[in-house]
Design a protein around this nucleic acid. Structure first.
Lengths: 235, 235
DNA sequence: CGTAGTCTTGACCCATCTCAAATGGTGTGG
DNA sequence: CCACACCATTTGAGATGGGTCAAGACTACG
């Protein structure tokens, strides 16, 4: 079942067994990509959407100044480019962070779903908007939080999201980013990100090494980052 | 016609006259708000969506640290909280920047529209995703651009958006923000924003005073900000 | 076992912030 | 019509968070 994790992440509005079957049936095939492979290049016209089944994916934009800004990190169960259905092309790129497996949903199939069920439409639409809410929280992070808090906040977010799909059963979980990636996501330089990571580790809150996060003190971390998961719309 | 400006901003996918009439009919009434009045408070359950007819609106989030981050600036023709239809509540607040007039669309009416037309659904969905694309461009701005460029880029964006709805016929247009607002939108302090505004003015690119932008040299400004409007999805 | 990416650390610098105060509207009440 | 309060803007001086540059260490992998 391709859509199990997606439905675990998005429980509202509730859909019927028939609707779930229709959603599942809208997928035509699965594809795999290798780590660091580009899945969608910005501005390319798209005709299908990609549901992440296994592995991690990033969305990012290269700036004219030669910098790179990571816009989102996706985990299994996320539609990484469902917004390509109404938009037809994306203004950013999508790349695999690890080896990944995805299921493809052609736009016409999605259109058929929207015709068949207003509830399913609402669910799909909603999932793209939860994504946007995460974008907005990143604006707040980058615009109004200090470097250390930005990193702490990101670790909180990824922990809670992974926990929900059952992929963070303990306080140690994979986050397959380099320190450069972490810097590109938080609007910092790699050097400063490195120093802040050390600080978070030494202060006993969280340790990041080799693409793995170990939460040393969840309560301290959550308080330090002032993390409030409301923006993730779990319900 | 409440939806004229909205349809001027969002031309894709094209809808029929019947669909346009249905959209128009989904609005139950108009309301006015005074400048600086809060329209939607974060986390309040919502049962209707707000289409901005006249005036300017901001979306923002107050951080636990006591800072304020502006997330979006809306102009006539924007649905300021269409995302409340699938989300049911918002994780940010919405406030009037000027005296405004809005049209209200109850969620049940919007649901009826999604049942009636897949094309109209796509159009509405798309408009929320263009909004998200703007959010992402702001992430890039705040995360990867210098202070002066952030401001220049914002002026470019507002100019192009206002131009499209016919409200920037010349190179001078209203942008009813204070310098504090401008700073809250770009992740700067008001003091630094002030200094950068002076620099942009002295370098002959753009002058901002009393809620009004005067573009002194559009080409220079556009080049300086490396502004590419692709993320606005005009088509 | 060489090469390239990643991480770490040091030293220095600068873009931006903080604090503080002066200036200049503008609306209000007397 | 004046005096006052309030807010937005401007400017100065000094502090600092984070950037830049550079080098060394560690790791994975062909």
């Amino acid at each position: 079942m391709y859509t199990d994790l997606f439905l675990k992440t998005h429980r509202v509005p509730a859909i019927t067994a028939d609707e779930q079957a229709a959603l599942e049936g809208a997928s035509v095939r699965t594809v795999t990509y290798n780590a660091r492979q580009i899945i969608v290049r910005q501005q390319t016209p798209l005709t299908q959407c990609t549901l992440l089944l296994e592995g991690f994916v990033e969305r990012y934009k290269d700036t004219p100044e030669g910098r790179r800004q990571i816009l989102a990190i996706h985990i299994p169960g996320d539609f990484v480019d469902l917004h390509s259905y109404p938009l037809k092309r994306l203004e950013h790129s999508v790349a695999a962070l690890t080896d990944v497996r995805v299921a493809l949903f052609p736009h016409p199939e999605i259109r058929a779903l929207t015709k068949a069920s207003a509830t399913l439409t609402e669910l799909l639409w909603r999932s793209t908007l939860v994504d946007a809410a995460i974008n907005r929280e990143w604006i707040v992070s980058i615009g109004a939080r200090s470097a250390a808090i930005r990193l702490a906040h990101l670790f909180c977010e990824m922990y809670v999201r992974l926990q929900r799909i059952g992929q963070a059963p303990t306080l140690t979980f994979p986050l397959p980013l380099t320190q450069v990636d972490l810097a590109d996501a938080t609007g910092l330089t790699a050097v400063h990100a490195n120093r802040m990571l050390r600080q978070l580790r030494e202060r006993g809150m969280v340790a990041f090494r080799q693409g793995e996060v170990e939460i040393l003190d969840w309560d301290a971390l959550r308080r330090f980052a002032k993390f409030d998961p409301a923006y993730l719309f779990f319900e």
